[in-house]
Design a protein around this nucleic acid. Sequence first.
DNA 1: TGGTAAGATTAAACCGGTTTAAATCAAGCC
DNA 2: GGCTTGATTTAAACCGGTTTAATCTTACCA
Lengths: 343, 343
Amino acid sequence: MSSTKRVTIRDVAREARVSPGTVSRAINDSPLVSEDTRRRVLEVVEQLDYTPNVVARRLSLGKTLAVAVIVPFFTRPSVSERLNGVVSLLSHSQYDLVIHNVETPKQRAKCFQEIPHSEHADGVLSISLTPTDAEAERLAEADVPVVLIDAEHPALRGVHHQVTVDDVTGGELTTGYLIGLGHTKIGFVGDPIDNPFNFTSSRDRYWGYQKALREADIPIRPEYYEENQHGRRQARQSARKMLALSDRPTAIFAASDTQAVGVLEAAREAGLRVPDDLSVVGYDDIEIADVLGLTTRRQLLFESGRRGVELLLEMLRNPDTDPVYEVLPTELIVRDTTASVGD
Amino acid sequence: MSSTKRVTIRDVAREARVSPGTVSRAINDSPLVSEDTRRRVLEVVEQLDYTPNVVARRLSLGKTLAVAVIVPFFTRPSVSERLNGVVSLLSHSQYDLVIHNVETPKQRAKCFQEIPHSEHADGVLSISLTPTDAEAERLAEADVPVVLIDAEHPALRGVHHQVTVDDVTGGELTTGYLIGLGHTKIGFVGDPIDNPFNFTSSRDRYWGYQKALREADIPIRPEYYEENQHGRRQARQSARKMLALSDRPTAIFAASDTQAVGVLEAAREAGLRVPDDLSVVGYDDIEIADVLGLTTRRQLLFESGRRGVELLLEMLRNPDTDPVYEVLPTELIVRDTTASVGD
DNA sequence: TGGTAAGATTAAACCGGTTTAAATCAAGCC
DNA sequence: GGCTTGATTTAAACCGGTTTAATCTTACCA
C-alpha cells in the first residue's frame, strides 16, 4: 500500500550530493572513493533505507547471481537429501537457488538445453542425471560452470566438476558381502536398465552384481533379475515374482532402500522370515533403513550435495580452477536383514 | 568456447531492417505490427537463433518473473511433499522457482523481511511457517501476493491467500477415535509448544486432544504429555519416558508420523505389542505410515502445495482476485497400530 | 485536392544499476 | 609559476529489453 516509490541509487546520489557512480563505488567497497565521501554516502543509504535493485545489478554485471539446480523427482528421499546438502551451503552465499524439476524426458531435454547458459544462471548443479553423449557434448560447450552430482560422463572429465559414486564397485562389494555369507542364489531387484531418463545407478549396481558373481564362479541366472519402474510397490511386484520361483533365491539385493522395502513386504506376504529364510540388502541408507533394521550400503547423500556446491562456488570465485573428478566412498551398514545362508 | 557474442534484439532489428521496438512487439504478439513485418522478424529470429535476455526483460518489465518459496527443513517428508506439489505446477509456468530454506530463526526473520518485495519475487509461497503478529503485519504490507500454505494468521484474512488445515479439529477427531475405541489413558507425543520457529501444528493438535478429552470427561494428565525437538529419535525418548510410567497409557497420539515411528520403536524396546498392549496413531500419512501399517490422519500434503500455486498464479494473472481462506480436509486412515482397549 | 483519421513504424526514453573515459583538484617538484 | 602526478569525482555510455511520444503512410471523405 505504501505508494512511496522505490529508492534508487540516483536518489541517494542527489541526497549525498555526489554522482550515482560514486554511490555505487562506495557501496561496493571500491578503493576509488575517499573515506570521507564513503562515510557520507553510507549515512544517506542508511537514512533512506536504500537497497540496490538486484535485477538491475544482474543486467549491469552480466551475471544472474543465481545457481540453477536440475533435479529429477526430488521427493525421492535420496535425491531430497542431496538437495538438502546443496541448500545448506548455498543459502549462505550470495546466490539464489533456482530449482528445475525434471519429471519427463521432455523437461530433461529442455533443462540441459537451456539452463547451462549465462543468461539463466552463473552455475549449474545437476543431480543424479547421467548425460547422454549428445547432452554431454552440449554441456561441454556451456558458458557457465557445471557440476555433476551423482553422475558423470567421460567426455566431461577435465571440463566440469563431477562428484560421483562408484556404483559398479558398490554393487560388487555388496554382492560380495552376500556371497561371503554363503549365498549363491542371489536375486537383484532394480530399475529398468533402459529408461528414458538414462538413470544409471541401478544398471551399474547390477553390473557390479554380475562381476561379483562371475568372480565367485556363480552362474548368473536371468530369472534372478527383475526390473521395474522405481518405487516400493513396483519392487514388491518384482520380488513377489522372484520369490514364487520353485528355486527361489536365498538373498535379494535391491538397487535402493525404497525398493528393498518392497522386497521386505513381498517376503512377509510370502510368509518368509527375514533374515532366516531370505536376506535382503538395500542401497543408500535413508532413514527408513534404520527404522526397519535394513542392511544397506550407505552413500554420502547430503555430503555429495554439499561438496558439489563447494566446488561450484570455488569455480565461480576462480574460473581457472581445474575441474575435479571425485568419487565418494560407500560403506556397508549391517543390520538385521542379512544372515549366513542356512543359519 | 564459442566466442560469438550473444545475439541481441538490435542484431535482429538490423538484420530485419526494422527498429528494436518493432522486434519486441513482433515477438510479444502485440497488435501494433503488420502481419507482414511480424513474419519477416520471426524469420530472422529463427535464423539468428535469438532468445530474449531474461534479465533485461525483468528490469524493463519491472517484474522478476520468479516465485519465491520459503520453506523450513524441506527434507521432512511432509514438507518435501508439499514442495513437490508446488513444483509440479509451477514448472509449467513462466516463473522461476527460487527456494529459500529456513533452518534458523535468523534465516526466518531475514526471509520474511526481504523476500516479499517486488525486487525479489513476483509472488511468495510460505510453507508451514506461522507468522508471528509482527511478521503478519509486515506480510500485510508486502507489495506482492503471498500465499500461506499450512499456516495462517487472522490479520491476513482477506489480505493474502491461505491454504490451511484445521489441526485442532484434526487432533480432536483423532483423539476421539481413540476414545471411541475405549481408551481413556491416552498419551500425546509432540514438538515443543514454544519453539523459535513458531511451529503450531503440534500445539494445535494437542489442543484438539485436550478438547476431546474434556468433552469425554476424561481428566488430562500432565504425565501423558511429552514434547521434544521434532524427530524420530527424540520422539522415541519421549515415548520411552511415558511408557515407563507405573500407570502407562494404553494409546499414544503422535503429532506426526515421523514421531509415531519413534513411539513404535519405544514400544518395541519396552516389549509392548502394538496394538494389543498399545495403540499408536500418527499424523500426515507419509509413505512410511503405509509401510509400517501405521494408523494415521492423512492430510493433503501434495495438494496443499499445488493449490497454493494455483491461487498464486491466479492472483498474478488478476491482482483483483479476492484472497481466499481454504481449509483442506483430513481423513483417518485406519491400519494395524490401533485396537480397542482390552482386545 | 486538402484534411483527417487509422495504422504501422521509428526514435528516444526508461528500467536501475556498473564502469569507462574525461574532468577536476590538490600536492609535489624544479 | 608551470608542469606532472596521483587521487577523486563526474558525466556519459552501457547492459538488453519495453514502451511512450512522435513521425510517416495510406486510405477515405467532403
